[in-house]
């Protein structure tokens, strides 16, 4: 049985990803700040903050030990905040970077250590179309995801020798809590900048992730794939 570690599995896209891979026969190790919302014999939940180094190290090593090795990591956990730059509170900016950048960094680092021993592995990070669109009101969110893109591209080069691929998917807006506070006017304006003017779906994201995880994608690394014709 293959093992996948997915962050932010309590709700939204992360929960859908976990359910998809459980349905495909994978063992899923998930985490969130809150308790599990998935009940399945092959689902293992950890309550943690993704920027808590000690908790992340403990989760990854526990998952690797129990499963015999982690085949894939999906760094889905993320937070956003819609603010004009001049009205962005420092704690908000810091919180966005702690979850999106440092959380992804910690999981990439710890999971890559375990994958190195197996000489194979797939890491998929989460970018956003807000970065190439230079989306007003999302400066710190887009900046945090730009950092995730850089980590993705550079880490791919640093771990390629060990058979580990590192890629990122850049979704368009999907109807989740993450965009709950965005007005319909702003959303329409955003969709107008896409080549294909519609909201994204979990299936759109899954399609890209499945491609990255496919054993035939062993030569695909350091790539960021945006959905909706953005970029």
């Amino acid at each position: 049985m293959k093992t996948i570690l997915i962050t932010g599995t309590r709700k939204g896209i992360g929960k859908a990803l976990a359910e998809h891979y459980l349905g495909g026969g994978w063992a899923v190790y998930g985490c969130s700040r809150g308790k599990a919302s998935i009940e399945h014999g092959n689902y293992h939940h950890f309550c943690l903050d993704v920027s808590d180094e000690e908790a992340v190290v403990a989760m990854v090593r526990s998952a690797a030990r129990e499963s015999g090795g982690i085949d894939a990591l999906l760094n889905n956990a993320g937070i956003a905040s819609m603010n004009h730059f001049l009205l962005t509170p420092y704690p908000t900016a810091r919180s966005i970077f702690e979850t999106n950048v440092f959380g992804s960094f910690l999981f990439c680092r710890e999971v890559a250590k375990t994958m190195r021993r197996l000489k194979t592995g797939r890491i998929v990070n989460f970018a956003t179309v807000a970065t190439p669109l230079r989306l007003e009101g999302e400066a710190m969110y887009a900046a945090s995801k730009a950092a995730v893109e850089s980590i993705t591209r550079i880490l791919a080069r640093e771990v390629g020798e060990w058979g580990i691929t590192v890629n990122a998917v850049g979704p368009t807006p999907v109807a989740t809590d993450l965009i709950r506070g965005v007005s319909s006017e702003k959303m329409e304006a955003l969709l107008d900048r896409q080549a294909i003017r519609r909201m994204g779906t979990v299936e759109d994201i899954l399609n890209v992730i499945d491609f990255f995880l496919d054993k035939r994608s062993a030569f695909v690394t350091g790539q960021v794939v945006y959905l909706g014709g953005v970029g």
Binding site: A58, R61, K113, R116, R117, E161
Partner: peptide, 24 residues
């Protein structure tokens, strides 16, 4: 440098196996 990275990673795993500690 790459071998040093790998060695440190192996040593961290060994410390956990032997002493039950999770050090970075």
């Amino acid at each position: 440098s790459l071998a040093l990275v790998s060695l440190i990673s192996d040593l961290e795993m060994k410390l956990e196996e032997r002493f039950g500690v999770q050090l970075t």
